[in-house]
Amino acid sequence: MEDVIKLHYVVPGDDFTRAGAASGDVKRTLKQLGISPAVIRNVSIAMYEGEINMVIHAGGGEIDVEITENGIKMALADKGPGIANVELAMKEGYSTAPDNIRNLGFGAGMGLPNIKKYTDDFRIETAVGVGTTLFLNVNIQ
């Protein structure tokens, strides 16, 4: 039997004060497991970006994390507006964030590109009006 730790988080929408709580908890858990700093860094950066995206664009969502000795799998699902043009959204600097979000220092158009950069597997399922789910994987060598 493979050992697996499953974590589940509900990310509330429109609450910036709580954004980062889920990725913070995962970071803390991975540190206690003795996972290498490089892996922890990749997971927490990717997940934090995803969490922020959920708050900015989708009114919150849910995150499932599975930790095994081989890697960390994350599924970030929201029921937000969906992404009309994924190719464009993956471009660095492209952003649909409104001004009030940009004023907070977010919405630089680096969210999705950064998530891809810091993960080993990156898959996105999205439908306009239905929502978006990111499937991410960071390997442990």
Partner: peptide
């Protein structure tokens, strides 16, 4: 702060 040196042991402890 680490639970154990071995990752598998640490994971079981974490569960």
């Amino acid at each position: 702060m680490k639970l154990a040196d071995n990752v598998i042991t640490a994971m079981r402890m974490m569960s």
